[in-house]
């Protein structure tokens, strides 16, 4: 569904990504693991159209999107839960969710999706009138998920959703991600520093090191790979 070929992205003159090729398909979790500064966020920002690649191509459902605007990309069905969540702190939880549906005009569909999100994350329903900044870290992460789902995406990009959360909540977020993938009919690209966590729920994985792909393969193989175990799983 998402095909990235030979992607190169630069900040001014310095390449942050070189010759990166990744593919991700529907109803599965594809993970990209790598340490801090490896280029994971850069990759997701480029997919979402916040950064322009220097070369290479990105296709979604067969169409080139590497030159499309962020708004076109959301419209085509790619939605991102960004690093740091990037919520709108001083508007209500409900308003945050509705901004997620900004590009949609099907009132019925919007209300149906809102109900579904409240069903997945009942806490958001309870707190729908509160300002987003008054939520706890875990609740904010759920809101970020909910907001991304409100656009009715076919593919979700998740940038380190577990970061800064307590281990119990981390685990819960991962469960939520697998559930969403099955129930919501979306493909997921999950970017993580916590390789163990990510590989435990993903079907396929890539290892990104200093802007280039070092390894790829089915998640269960990567977990067993010695170099991955040494470098990322601390084993």
């Amino acid at each position: 569904m998402l095909e990235i070929k030979q992607l190169e992205v630069k900040y001014d003159l310095i390449s942050a990504l070189r010759e990166v090729s990744v593919s991700a398909s529907e109803n599965t979790i594809t993970t990209i693991v790598g340490s801090n500064g490896a280029g994971k966020t850069t990759l997701l920002k480029t997919i979402s159209g916040l950064l322009r690649p220097a070369s290479g191509e990105i296709r979604f459902l067969g169409n080139r999107i590497d030159n499309a605007s962020p708004s076109k990309i959301v419209k085509m069905g790619i939605s991102q839960v960004p690093e740091g969540r990037e919520l709108f702190p001083r508007i209500s939880v409900y308003d945050n969710l509705m901004v997620g549906a900004y590009l949609r005009s099907d009132k019925k569909g919007i209300n149906r999706d809102l109900d579904r999100i409240y069903h997945h994350f009942p806490i958001l329903k309870d707190r729908r009138r509160q300002l987003a900044r008054n939520l706890s870290g875990g609740e904010q992460q759920m809101l970020a998920f909910g907001r991304a789902l409100m656009s009715g995406p076919k593919m979700l990009l998740l940038d380190e959703p577990s970061i800064g959360l307590a281990p119990v909540i981390e685990q819960k977020i991962m469960e939520t991600i697998s559930n969403l993938t099955q129930e919501e009919d979306v493909g997921v690209v999950l970017v993580e520093q916590n390789a163990a966590l990510a590989l435990s729920i993903a079907s396929y994985g890539y290892v990104l090191e200093q802007g280039s792909l070092a390894l790829k393969g089915p998640a269960e193989d990567l977990i067993k790979d010695d170099s991955v175990r040494a470098a990322y799983l601390g084993l």
């Binding site: 979402s48 916040l50 962020p70 708004s71 990309i73 959301v74 419209k75 939605s79 991102q80 960004p82 969540r85 990037e86 919520l87 709108f88 702190p89 001083r90 508007i91 308003d95 945050n96 901004v99 997620g100 900004y102 590009l103 907001r147 656009s151």
Partner: peptide, 15 residues
């Protein structure tokens, strides 16, 4: 209002 509070967040919603 969303854009005023968080530009990146707003762009990612397709605004």
């Amino acid at each position: 209002r969303a854009t005023a509070q968080n530009k990146t967040g707003a762009m990612l919603q397709g605004i």
